[in-house]
Design a protein around this nucleic acid. Structure first.
Lengths: 329, 329
DNA sequence: AAACTATATGTAACCGTTTACACATATAAA
DNA sequence: TTTATATGTGTAAACGGTTACATATAGTTT
């Protein structure tokens, strides 16, 4: 390994001077700068980030904690974060928490132990873990918080829109799927939809689901049609659940969207590829990741923050699990 | 920040002793061990990995480089790697290369600068980047290599199986999609399929595609049916391309699998959710990630390696874009 | 009793950086 | 000419751990 001392020796100056040219701090004569740079080139020296991090008590690392990268909503988020952080010269320490408090704490600890300078967390686990005594900035992603900066989509509005749209398109016996209780965004969506539905004159049922895994979703889909066979509209808590409902409905021979309308939530990439393509409420996942990264960078740079909480807009994506509505009507 | 010195002071011993109890090295009296542990508890001390890493010249970090986490094949791989590494006490430094040599080198550099102890790389970029003068173990994932340990699926066999199955099911005018030239696994699949097809008595065309992005795939799908309108069987280079072909075929009013059979490659999670569900050649992505992690850990521990190159089996997933074949026939 | 060995602990050097401080020279202001 | 200021560079002390080495005591062998 080639160290700063090797560079110093080769260029005939002290390590302090080498450090100064590398970091562009303090005075250094143009001639020495050139000598040093030449030595750097020749030896292919690049500074040891670990040593740097130890002294400065800060690294170029940021911690990214997701529930599960395997859930199709998260790769987009992650990519948004990564692209932005990469642009800013930061690298990602990455972990999946599975919404498990112990795993979460574990990762948080190792983030700290590795001197990360900031954390982006998209977890929602029930026993709310302690982010309090973290001495570094945290921004929550896909999750609201009063105490911390956060970036999230307007779930409540999304719920309202979904309910509005399905109502506008004529569903009369709606089943509203309520996602896992500890996932705040799922509850927001539910509340928004509930608000609209309860002010309308249509019948509706609420059914609670407790995970977003596709296998579980399939079971609930079966249960849904067993319990409420005359449902003609489903507001799903996310696209995965919507997909399961869609499949089960097709299996039962229902015509979609004629017999049954379905609206999902998230607009994960595969939703447009389903048959029929899924109507859904879109969250701008990539942009959310990017936004979170930008917010964190600003906080780390101690810039003035106008908005601690960034709420991203949500849009209805009108595909084929909902009927067309007469725009003149 | 609480340091080892604070613990030493509180427990009335030297830092060396504290270090010894923490690392369970050297002799330490049971009574002092207890005193130290009590102080550790009380101060909530946990060692600074950066300092440790600096002295030992090795961290508990490993670098994971993927082409693009947003491509649905990779989250599974990543999760397999993560689960296994987490189990072994390693953390992941993560980056997307976009198959771009510069980005790749960039990440590789920062991996090294951060003292990672091993690297798992799933990149395939054309200007083969230099992994030679890396002083730490590398394992390639989803990529073959003579010089480095690697874990990959048997692409050639996969290609053969796909061709066999589509032939067995009666396609007579087959279009074989050849994936990007620099992606070795895609070439292997192509070669395998080509081998079988060229020994058969059916007509076939080869069409070259140059990326795996869905938007591009849609264009090729259109081009495919424009150029070879009577194609009755498509062997796609992966499930994304297969999905695009499927969509275009449906749009053109073809019945699937009656008019056209399609076989994909990878078995990404959404393939089973398409309509009709996609027949494909499955790569065990999660297991591949796991396997790669295990291999890397073994190498890092300098254990005897029986197999430098782990070829994972590939299986035909018989869903609904292929016809049923009479098992008695 | 002398010589070993095992157990237990502390001192200080080291890992590769950054930076406070000291020192030297050149230039400008008095 | 003296004094102040800007420029340029080096020495050495950190940062928070680990570990080689020294030292001390207790128990075992001869």
């Amino acid at each position: 390994m080639v160290t700063i001392r090797d560079v110093a020796k080769k260029s005939g100056v002290s390590v302090a001077t080498v450090s100064r040219v590398l970091n562009e701090t303090g005075y250094v004569h143009e001639d020495t700068r050139k000598k040093v740079m030449a030595a750097v080139e020749e030896l292919k020296y690049s500074p040891n980030e670990v040593a740097r991090s130890l002294f400065k008590k800060k690294s170029k690392l940021i911690g990214l904690l997701l529930p599960d990268i395997t859930n199709p909503f998260f790769p987009q988020l992650a990519r948004g974060v990564e692209d932005e952080m990469q642009r800013e010269g930061y690298r990602l320490l990455f972990g999946n928490s599975d919404e498990n408090a112990e795993k979460e704490m574990d990762y948080l600890n190792t983030f700290i132990q590795n001197n990360v300078v900031g954390i982006i967390s998209a977890t929602n686990n029930k026993t709310k873990t302690n982010y309090k005594d973290l001495s570094i900035p945290v921004v929550f992603l896909d999750r609201t918080s009063n105490d911390y900066p956060s970036v999230y989509a307007d779930g409540k509005e999304g719920g309202r829109i979904a309910a509005d749209e399905i109502l506008k398109r004529g569903s009369k016996r709606i089943t509203l799927l309520k996602g896992p209780a500890h996932i705040q965004p799922a509850q927001d969506r539910f509340q928004g939809a509930l608000e609209v539905l309860s002010q309308s004159s249509v019948d509706f049922h609420v059914m609670t689901t407790t995970s977003f895994a596709f296998e579980d979703a399939e079971k609930w889909a079966k249960e849904l049609f067993a319990t409420y066979p005359d449902t003609d509209g489903v507001l799903a808590s996310n696209d995965i659940v919507a997909t399961a409902v869609l499949h089960e409905a097709l299996r039962l021979g229902k015509s979609i969207p004629e017999d049954l309308q379905i609206i999902g939530f998230d607009d994960i990439p595969q939703s447009s590829l389903l048959f029929p393509p899924l109507s859904t409420i879109r969250q701008p996942a990539y942009e959310m990741g990017k936004e979170a990264a930008q917010l964190l960078v600003k906080i780390m740079n101690k810039e003035k923050i106008e908005q601690q909480h960034i709420q991203m807009p949500v849009t209805f994506i009108d595909r084929n699990t909902t009927r067309k509505v007469d725009t003149n009507g």
